[in-house]
């Protein structure tokens, strides 16, 4: 069973390494990830939101809906942990 898991792991790793041949080089300024929406965030963040930290402006303003439900996920996880193992003394 362990050897089967090892074989599966090695096959998956080799396939993933084979797939990296199509990836852009590390640190390439013209990679697709750096060209699609991020230039707009970088150039407009101070003009539109007055916040120099782009991470904060994207997190809280451009993608505020995402962060709202992500905070809800944290809240739900905490409530779940309390409901699972909290045993108050009677």
């Amino acid at each position: 069973m362990k050897s089967l898991a090892f074989i599966v792991t090695v096959i998956t790793g080799v396939l993933l390494i084979y797939a990296t041949a199509d990836f852009p080089d590390w640190g390439d300024p013209s990679s697709p990830a750096s060209l699609h929406v991020s230039p707009r965030y970088i150039e407009k963040t101070v003009e539109e939101t007055g916040v120099p930290n782009m991470v904060t402006s994207v997190l809280a303003d451009y993608r505020g809906y995402d962060t709202l439900f992500e905070t809800t996920v944290i809240f739900t996880a905490g409530i779940t942990a309390v409901m699972l193992i909290r045993r108050p003394r009677k």
Partner: peptide, 19 residues
């Protein structure tokens, strides 16, 4: 523009309290 700044500050405070 500065209203966006303070709106973001408000939600950061909310996130901080919850976390």
């Amino acid at each position: 523009v500065m209203a966006r700044y303070y709106g973001m500050f408000s939600i950061e405070v909310g996130v901080g309290i919850t976390v």
